[in-house]
Nucleic acid binder design. Structure first.
Lengths: 221, 221
DNA sequence: ACCTGAACACCGTTCAAGT
DNA sequence: ACCTGAACACCGTTCAAGT
């Protein structure tokens, strides 16, 4: 696995670093200290090397993040999807979500490209295929994929940022401050729900929303 | 409008800076040079002041961003929403989207809090109200709002990041490289669509997706 | 080919002092 | 009360040089 220099001339030293080693170290760092800790400089320190040595193996930080996403997607199990196209569409959407949900650092990558890693492309294929089998045209199927994708990205964004906020939990959230000041005449619905808002918006609605979105998408088939 | 010191003692100088002045300068900077240019240091330079002077008027950069969002939402016109609750729900979702869509720098704020500025809270009120009038329970209405919110955030994230990518358009997108290498036997649907993928995913599906999501939401009412 | 050291051009934020 | 200067603890990336 470890790439070696092709010519082992007398003066050439064996490479101390490799893309693999860098990716592994980055994964360890992410697991141990979270996304904020991952910087080129810190990573170099972790590898007992210098920042510039990394740039010999990855083009820039963006490429490193993409490589990390790729490695993560490759490791994920590829579950059998249901035969029924509707169930298949929902299941694929769920997998898409789950692949990304357990590596929250990925959100920065999400923003940087609108397409998954190659290793996750089978999910997109499954979704477009299922949508077509549900009676959508190929064009509608692509639109359906995009709508589900937007829903997924949004859910992840909000989920991750909430988790980060809870991490440094000292200061009261803007939301709490806002809801305690709600004028009941101007915002009757929100005021009526204000004390339950935190709990109502805390429970996980991803799956339910996914099913809802699919229901809407197939209604036009 | 300009806050003045209450005691104008002989030794007290008139304040050179104010929250208002800082916000205005930040808006100008954002308009002129985009989100990346907005830093506390740069902003101080623009105001012919020092970074630390800013911290006397805003707590930190997060608060500044929140104040900017608030100011933006306040300026937005508040359109009359349709009476019909279903149309009302869609229209409110559209406004929510539009308020955010024309200030792409906001995406960083979106991640940092799950609730809108106070000035945009009327949209949430309208959505929850419309959902209830459509026959949903208050709990379902909150879930409906959240699902639309996720969809909106995701659409904006992807939209903004695509626009940024096009800004520095030198390097070919990861997507293009990926799609040109697609194995037709492994990804039959995507391969069949590969040459049209760019155009199919370029057109704006926000509105259509919004209507679809609402359709799915109301199907269970 | 692979790596290092020093530098460039930045960040957000804190501290201690000035008027 | 309002502001300044200097500093702390970082960033990503480039350049020129070393073996």
């Amino acid at each position: 696995m470890q790439p070696r220099s092709k010519r082992t001339g007398r003066t050439g030293r064996p490479p101390r670093l490799s893309q693999q080693a860098i990716i592994s170290a980055a994964e360890q760092l992410l697991a141990a200290e979270g996304a904020d800790a991952l910087s080129m400089r810190r990573l170099a320190k972790e590898l007992a090397s210098t920042p510039m040595a990394l740039y010999h193996h990855v083009r820039d930080k963006d490429e490193l993040l993409l490589l990390l996403l790729e490695a993560h997607a490759q490791r994920m199990p590829r579950p059998e999807l249901p035969e029924d196209p509707r169930e298949r569409l929902i299941a694929a959407g769920q997998v898409l979500h789950d692949v990304l949900a357990d590596c929250p650092w990925i959100v920065e990558v999400l923003a940087s490209d609108d397409l998954m890693a190659v290793s996750a492309l089978w999910i997109v294929e499954a979704m477009v295929d299922a949508a077509i089998k549900c009676g959508l045209t190929p064009e509608q199927a692509v639109d359906a994929y995009r709508i589900i994708w937007y829903y997924t990205v949004g859910e992840l964004m909000v989920r991750v940022s909430r988790e980060r906020r809870q991490a440094d939990a000292d200061r009261p959230s803007y939301r709490d401050r806002t809801f305690s000041m709600l004028a009941a005449d101007e915002y009757p619905r929100l005021a009526a729900l204000s004390d339950r808002w935190a709990t109502l918006t805390a429970h996980d609605t991803h799956r339910q929303g996914l099913e809802t979105v699919v229901e809407g998408l197939l209604a036009r088939a």
